[in-house]
Design a binder for these strands. Structure first.
Lengths: 342, 342
DNA sequence: ATGAAAGCGCTAACAA
DNA sequence: TTGTTAGCGCTTTCAT
């Protein structure tokens, strides 16, 4: 009796082998390029692959070879500007190397929540993991990654004992604060976005600059990630005559703060100078265009992936990659002016 | 001779079975919940799993069961606001159902490029695919998905023959245009963002409203996705006295247009009314706050995933889910005023 | 250079 | 309810 007619399931390597008239391992060899195959057989195999539209099963491959071409990206958020751009950078770099990327969101730093969030991802056979360690969920997730899995952390400040790509936020924040001080402001107020730990680089850089200049250190004001949370803070700041210069943890908060200031009747930069952080795509279009520190998030993601690749390949390689954001001076900062007495 | 000491490899189901003193299938049964297991054995198994920190291998599971808990999201972009939010919505919904999500970016609609971009992803055993069909790469990618794979497309306008979740952009654009016309503008100019096909919903809704009102139809102006591409268009528009109202394809472009208008010395809304689309988080903070149509991208993603789930489960279910964006009237639109003769 | 045989970690079918 | 057996689609020995 002849063979039953194949139903339309995806073809397997066996189908390809039969079609090409070679053994299964030979097909595998042309697929992986692991061993030499005679040109004649290679041609046959390639033809069979094309005819059958064969695609190897990653699952079967992973199972036997114990090597995977998939990485996971773990992040507290995926849609905010910095995160989204970082993820894009990782994806571009990964795709170029034939890696596939999985996204895992950890919304909360609570231990059980973290476990639950990453559980499904960790059942995958992964080549490695990139953790966006910008916030508490990221920090918590990093601790939960099995020790035998290659990992790199991406963040705004260096930390020891871990492979990481970093944006030197503290230095940039310090320079931005120095810029404001240099303009003649007696001090610089600071609006902080949710930090990953007790302190974050932006805040500590700001403080460092104030201390170095022996300027008074105003209390830090905390914003949420929502741009509109800056509005109330802006109104508050408007009521404080010492607030002639404000450094905000990111551009979106700066925009909120500027709106709050405007609602209170103050102009930027005439009455108050405002600096942001990140160089959000809209920062240059804002009125007035925002002075800020450009962070190359996509570059960070790309560097992070390269570091991960080194870990995967076992190439000793570097453990650490840092880059300093570049300051972008625009029109939202200027020399102070005596404010009208109220 | 006794068994060799286990090295620190990840434990397998066999290890768990040995430790618990049961057979491998019994462990499998408690894992999947597919069949009843006596409480006593279940306890033993659960204890062994916890002690060994065992995690089942998704690869092995997929290979034998032919069922996967991974979906792929294919998109032309991941970091722009609407895309990022849509992806977030998909991820949240997927995670809630125990699905894991892969991201695949297709930057170009060129056939070979598309093939290359999705090749690695298609070697994965996927439960289904969500395609963001907002742009040509998305449209091209959709065509390349194997017919046996459950798919849903997400887009701004309905199309037949495919399972899809939709945002009714045409209707919203029509209403926004009617709003502007109702304010007394003789016509409404339109700045288009890159469309997915020859026409997109926003543009056709705009045109429909003009035709219904028998208003003149000005030529469409094309912007890129970059907010700053709106600036030059804004300056152009400033030179056209018939342009007292402008409807932009998205909020970011609207912001660019407004800056161009401002650079030319025109005020919004006094000299020109500007409406955007999407309700970007910064739209309410802009000066003046932007009139726009709020699009629930995250909701779109969530609905899309539910549709996909129905396809995966074979539940007949609905093929189609649509929602209309809601208009948000703010201060960037107002009644026209006679412009100063130049 | 090529094929035969083994087996990755799991679930599905079957028997008990 | 439980265990035994088979086998998913590949890569990896190991012969030849």
């Amino acid at each position: 009796m002849g063979r039953a007619i194949k139903n339309s399931k995806n073809p397997t390597i066996t189908d390809v082998a039969e079609r090409a008239g070679v053994s299964v391992p030979t097909v595998s060899r042309v697929l992986t390029g692991a061993a030499r195959v005679s040109p004649a057989k290679r041609k046959l195999v390639e033809a069979a692959i094309a005819e059958l539209r064969y695609r190897p099963s990653a699952a079967a491959r992973v199972l036997v070879s114990r090597r995977s071409q998939t990485i996971a990206v773990i992040a507290g958020n995926t849609s905010r500007y910095g995160y989204a751009e970082t993820i894009r950078g990782i994806e571009v770099a990964a795709r170029a190397e034939g890696y596939t990327v999985m996204i895992t969101v950890v919304e909360n730093a609570d231990e059980d929540e973290v476990d639950r969030a990453i559980a499904a991802t960790l059942t995958q056979t992964l080549a490695g993991v990139v953790v966006l360690k910008f916030d508490p969920p990221g920090v918590a997730a990093l601790r939960k990654i099995p020790a035998d899995l290659p990992v790199v952390a991406l963040s705004g400040a260096r930390e020891t004992g871990i492979r990481q790509a970093v944006l030197d936020e503290a230095r940039a924040a310090e320079e931005l604060t120095e810029h404001l001080l240099g303009l003649g402001h007696a001090t610089v107020h600071h609006v902080r976005v949710p930090p990953s730990r007790r302190v974050d680089g932006r805040t500590s850089g700001w403080r460092r600059a104030l201390i170095a200049a022996q300027a008074p250190i105003p209390p830090v004001r905390d914003a949420t990630w929502l741009p509109r949370s800056g509005v109330a803070i802006g109104r508050d700041l408007a009521a404080d005559p010492s607030a002639t210069a404000v450094f905000c943890g990111n551009d979106e908060i700066a925009m909120g703060v500027m709106r709050g200031l405007a609602e209170a009747g103050l102009r930027v930069p005439e009455d108050v100078s405002v600096a942001g952080f990140d160089d959000h795509p809209l920062a240059e279009l804002w009125s007035p265009p925002l002075t800020t520190a450009r962070q190359d998030f996509a570059g960070l993601g790309g560097r992070g992936f390269q570091l991960l690749l080194q870990a995967i390949d076992g190439t000793g390689g570097r453990l650490y990659s840092s880059e300093r954001p570049r300051l972008v001076f625009r029109e939202s900062t200027a020399a102070p002016r005596v404010r009208d007495p109220r």
